[in-house]
Design a protein around this nucleic acid. Structure first.
Lengths: 232, 232
DNA sequence: AATTAGTTTGACCGATTGATCAGATCGTTT
DNA sequence: AAACGATCTGATCAATCGGTCAAACTAATT
């Protein structure tokens, strides 16, 4: 359960401000140290996401993670407690980012607006964080052995979206669909563009420099689900 | 490029029938040996699919593969030439099975029939071969470093399906869609049910013994794409 | 100048990795 | 019975794995 930053007692202790020491000078020096540490931990996290995403939990080596982060192996182990815990921490970290990647609606938004916004948000995240996206896919495809203990928030957000879609159906705003499956389908299609970028590029016959036409993709994906709801 | 069966010259040599030796007796003895080998190779393949699917190329160990196949490690290495080649052979083997998993139509089939048949076929394969399905997903998600050299047939089948869908659009049988993206979307959704079974089960709140309602899933998935085409 | 907390280093641990080898073993064919 | 090709086995290889350790180092506090 340890956070990336504080896996050892002494490190944890240092994080707390000493009592009765309000001078800004002292705190400035401490802040310098803390920020340096934060920088290193961020580098470790980025390196680990890369490694884990392309090799998996078992295939990834701490050696390689250290190298990517510009550290030596013992140095890395000074900041983390174990490979498994680092992996779990990173999964939780990404999962936390994903809380906002669910169907949500402000009052007054039409179903079409909600779907379009969701598709846009999800595709954009995948385009900007392909590694994180693939790390998740690999974990889930392998049976979610680690993630399994952490997707309570995931379920909660899902349930909320289910209720939203069901309310559309009940009000007769859209054609009837299974809310849960419908949501999973959106997830599947948008996720596809992040996880299978190579396949997409290949099937589109794109060169190394070229980028997929994300505008057209977004339109087409949104259209798929809007038509299914009978609102396009 | 070695096949699973013949990575060594002597093994390869034995596969060929001796010239001028047509007796069924002799060939029966030889056949016995050959069939035994075939059995072992099949066991290796199944074991390797399991291992590679859940650990990835790097994470999988020949030790574990041997154990799953009921062999010792040196015994396994007698039949395969290297872990990498075994992995590649298996990818090609699965890819070959997938040739039939594309949109195809006999003359006279309506678009709705074709889509429904495709969704059915694809979902069923995923349900019956989840490991092979996930092995592929992991490989592609990791940038298809090995598969990259082998998906020419894949591309060909894709192109055929693109032409088929485009012809529907041109004839005014369906609402206009991007044929390539449309096909990828079907692929993405159906693949999802194989690769993310854990997630699906979790979101459906299924116990260990319960199975997802594949009939409803199939109906809902087909409906999604039929509505997008304006034919439901 | 001495002390201290935080960090880095190189050497090292037992375990496991993919793979090889010579020799033993097996069933068939001569 | 001898000879043969095919297969199996235990021992073993260098390389790498995740992780630890004491000692050296650095920078700030006293």
């Amino acid at each position: 359960m340890g956070s990336l930053a504080a896996h050892r007692l002494r490190v944890q202790a240092m994080t707390q401000q000493k009592a009765g020491n309000p001078e800004p000078q002292v705190s400035s020096a401490r802040d310098k140290v803390l920020e340096r540490r934060r920088t290193i931990l961020a580098a470790i996290r980025d390196a680990a996401i890369d490694e884990f995403a392309s090799k998996g939990l078992i295939g990834a080596s701490t050696q390689a993670i250290a190298q990517r982060a510009g550290l030596t192996k013992p140095q890395l182990h000074y900041y983390i407690s174990s490979k498994e815990e680092l992996y779990e921490d990173i999964l939780v970290y990404i999962l936390d980012e994903w809380r906002e990647l669910f169907l949500t609606a402000s009052t007054g938004d039409s179903p079409a607006e909600v779907i379009r916004a969701y598709v846009h948000k999800k595709l954009e995240y995948g385009r900007r964080n392909p590694k994180a996206s693939r790390l998740f896919t690999t974990e889930i495809a392998n049976g979610a052995p680690v993630l399994g203990r952490h997707w309570a928030p995931y379920q909660a957000s899902t349930l909320e979206a289910v209720r939203l879609i069901q309310s559309w159906v009940d009000q007769g705003l859209v054609r009837p669909v299974d809310p849960l499956l419908f949501q999973m389908h959106i997830w599947a299609v948008t996720q596809h563009y992040a996880d299978f970028e190579v396949q997409v590029r290949n099937m589109m016959h794109l060169g190394d420099g070229e980028e997929p036409d994300y505008e057209r993709i977004e339109k087409e994906v949104a259209s798929l689900f809007l038509r299914a709801l009978g609102i396009e």
